[in-house]
Amino acid sequence: MKKILLEINNLKKNYHNKKNEIEAIDNLNFSVYENEILAIVGPSGCGKSTLLSILSNQDKPSSGKIIKNKELSIGYMLQSDSLFPWLTVKENALLPMEIKKQKTEENIKNVMNLFKKYGLQDFISMYPNNLSGGMRQRVALIRTLSFNPNLLLLDEPYSALDYQTRLALSNDLYNIIKQEGKTAILITHDIAEAISLADRVIVLSKRPCTVKNIYDIKLENKTNPIDNRKDPKFYYYYDLIWRDLDVHI
């Protein structure tokens, strides 16, 4: 049976500034299961990044509860790769351990294995500015995985990249998450990306966001994100989610 890793109960978040009070999240409820990829889609500005910043303890909720059923170690990845240009690729990937004071032989070896596994071992002594956008995001992913977190929070990680690169990277991402046995919450504004990668998709309403719908993605033949896009049921979900998002221009 699927085990619940994380439960979000009646979560509320308001931001305050001089002029007004901004309700970002209103009464949000959902669970995250172990080893699933959970995609979250929603209109821009609806509170998705806010949710991740609360889950990663950078922000406090105004009210509500987050129940963790297990000691969570969280890897957080943003849209911008945020690699430090003054550090080499390897030094960048080792940065989290340094900050967490977990820079052990074994952890370093793990990172080197990840580099090897994902075809980056020839680039580890280069500086990030000499890498393509796609490679930089791969390095950022390895940095995110470097301290062996069990929950990945991915905030539109590939949205700044071109379509081709994004497709290739989503295959990569999928394989890495599944092979390394991680749980991931993936925020994306790309419906196709959500359906092709995720086990479940949560659709959020406009701000203040609340859960509008949750879909169990049951494709006929689930393989990898690129091929999943050709699945007969792909457009069935696409249509549903598109309707939920109710985009007006």
Binding site: S56, Q58, Y76, L78, S82, F84, W86, L95, K100, F147
Partner: peptide, 27 residues
Amino acid sequence: TNKNYIILLKSLGATKKDIFQKVIIKS
């Protein structure tokens, strides 16, 4: 200083001193 660098470090549980030494000075 680039806010994303700081967000990244904070998400790793960095202290203010870490942020100063590893990002503010270096960048």
